[in-house]
């Protein structure tokens, strides 16, 4: 599926592997938590990049001990209304210092990517290429933020109380 990273549609080097599917001979795979728990030894022995996919009710505690093994953590939005992955994402980034790819999968709409990015997602899977391309513009619709979150944007309060005043000088990233 079309993937956005760094505001560009990129080629996805990872493969989602369903629980019933056999593992491919090589290449990075993203597997479910259930499969990870059931086939841990095999998966570790496979010696290829490994990613994990969490459902929205599978919290961060299920994987923190294994976090260094994963090159991708994909968090599923079963519907855009399910906001649990936003919390999971922030906890992964800010509390557990996860630095590899954090991918949003499922019901992903362009009007949410700004929130997702702020919570630490850096990869976004879209259903089709057009939707993905259109979503790129949505990352920058609103520049100012009031909160500190998992991205590196400085909150309005921080800017106001900093004499260099980056926002007002137009250098706010």
């Amino acid at each position: 599926m079309p993937l956005i990273k760094s505001k560009q549609v990129v080629i996805d080097t990872w493969q989602h592997v369903d629980d019933e599917m056999a593992l491919p001979a090589d290449g990075g795979v993203i597997i479910s938590l259930a499969r990870w728990q059931a086939e841990q030894t095999v998966l570790v022995g496979r010696n290829a990049p490994l990613g994990i996919r969490l459902k929205s009710d599978e919290g961060v505690d299920t994987i923190i001990n294994d976090l260094p093994r994963f090159g991708v953590v994909a968090l599923e939005f079963p519907t855009f209304k399910d906001g649990r992955p936003y919390s999971t994402a922030r906890l992964l980034r800010q509390r557990h210092h996860y630095t590899e790819e954090l991918r949003a999968v499922g019901d992903i709409l362009r009007d949410q990517v700004q929130f997702m990015r702020r919570c630490g997602f850096d990869a976004f899977e879209f259903a089709d290429k057009t939707a993905a391309e259109k979503a790129i513009a949505a990352f920058d619709e609103i520049e100012a933020v009031y909160q500190t979150a998992a991205d590196r944007r400085r909150s309005a309060a921080m800017i106001r109380n900093d004499t260099t005043n980056a926002f007002l000088n137009g250098t706010c990233g």
Binding site: G83, Y86, S87, Q112, F115, I142, V145, Y146
Partner: peptide, 14 residues
């Protein structure tokens, strides 16, 4: 008000 405006984590609460 400011903290809650467009809060990235809490815009899709239950």
């Amino acid at each position: 008000r400011q903290w809650s405006t467009l809060h990235p984590e809490f815009s899709f609460l239950p």
